[in-house]
């Protein structure tokens, strides 16, 4: 069953006219994004700054409204009107922020943070809340005596555990994890990743895992979507996508990512910058940087199309799967 599904989701910031009649520049943050995440799966979303991955996350949880397009959660289309709808949605899908330090109110205790969804969304009485708090703290591997503490008394990893517990408190089955380990140290990152995979199995959760770190995404995801300039450029099964990337941007990301114990980076020769978001190019947004560019790439936007491995790529001239071999990295020296 499809847990999270988006159809042609688009978000445009600005636009329209000011009251002196001038046109406001419109920024296309997200353009025609259609994704499906199956129940119990993890969809990894990879992309660099400004690719729209956080905008997508905010749209999914309802912190922002789409300009057009539809979101379906658990098969039902999300309505955004009344408070009741918003509460229903918050009980279905929750959000874990990148920086655990700033997603917790510095002047409120952890108990306050964790009780809020229990009281407001689930509607538990004081006794049940106390039991539930104990369960939640145990689930994320924290001692109960953390409850009366303030966020600044916690390390980054502990704070991120609390943030995860808060997302679980609403009994949401879908979690949008926006760079949940990027702000953490390597050893703590591993702790949180292990916790997330354990919770997914125990509670049957569905994750949308956003990260700029390809190795982390490869580690946690079943399917992966690569985003560039507000669009999904490649979408597919994790294994196929990383072993035989079809879109030149995915390939660029892969050969740019440093790997432990290997010296293999081949960077672009020229510094590249994103196209102007207020004036998006007519064709493929990556065309300017693309080594496999064809004349029609600049004029016609490519659509997501399937290849031999089942991976969808939005590219007029995708990499042949035979290139997969040359990609496998050389050892150091």
């Amino acid at each position: 069953m499809t847990a999270i599904s988006t159809t042609k989701l688009t978000r445009i910031f600005g636009g329209g006219t000011t009251f002196t009649g001038r046109h406001r520049p419109a920024v296309h943050a997200l353009l025609d994004v259609s994704l499906d995440v199956a129940e119990g799966d993890t969809l990894g979303i990879v992309g660099e700054t400004g690719c729209g991955k956080s905008t997508l996350a905010r749209l999914l949880v309802g912190l922002d409204e789409p300009t057009s397009g539809k979101i379906r959660l658990g098969g039902k289309e999300v309505r955004t009107r009344g408070r009741w709808d918003r509460r229903e949605r918050a009980r279905q899908i929750q959000y874990v922020f990148q920086d655990p330090g700033s997603s917790l109110n510095p002047r409120k205790t952890l108990q306050h943070a964790l009780e809020a969804p229990l009281r407001r969304l689930v509607g538990l009485d004081a006794g049940r809340r106390r039991e539930r708090l104990a369960e939640l703290m145990e689930a994320v591997g924290l001692r109960r005596d953390f409850l009366p503490r303030y966020p600044h008394e916690l390390s980054g990893g502990q704070a991120q555990r609390v943030a995860i517990a808060r997302a679980l408190a609403a009994e949401a089955r879908y979690l949008v994890l926006d760079e949940p380990v990027s702000a953490l140290d390597v050893s703590v990152q591993a702790q949180v990743l292990t916790l997330l995979s354990r919770l997914r199995e125990q509670l049957g959760l569905t994750y949308l895992f956003i990260s700029h770190d390809l190795s982390v995404v490869e580690n946690v995801s079943d399917k992966v979507a690569v985003m560039y300039f507000g669009r999904v450029v490649e979408l597919g099964d994790r294994r196929h996508l990383f072993q035989a990337p079809r879109h030149p941007y995915t390939e660029l990301l892969m050969r740019s990512a440093p790997r432990l114990g290997q010296r293999h980076i081949r960077a672009e020769t020229k510094p590249a910058e994103l196209p102007d978001p207020t004036n998006p190019p007519a064709g493929c947004a990556f065309a300017n940087r693309c080594p496999r560019r064809l004349p029609k790439c600049r004029t016609h936007p490519p659509a997501l199309e399937g290849g031999p491995t089942g991976t969808l790529a939005a590219c007029w001239n995708p990499l042949p799967s035979a290139d997969a071999e040359t990609l496998s990295s050389k050892p150091v020296g």
């Binding site: 390597v186 050893s187 591993a190 490869e218 990383f242 496998s328």
Partner: peptide, 30 residues
């Protein structure tokens, strides 16, 4: 990196997911 001598180095290396080694299990340091 290939033969760490200190247990911390060894454990830290185990914490890092490596691209292209998707079956490698990430082990956290408690």
């Amino acid at each position: 990196l290939s033969a760490p001598a200190h247990p911390y180095t060894a454990k830290l290396i185990e914490c890092v997911p490596v691209l292209g080694e998707s079956d490698r299990k990430v082990e956290a340091i408690p």
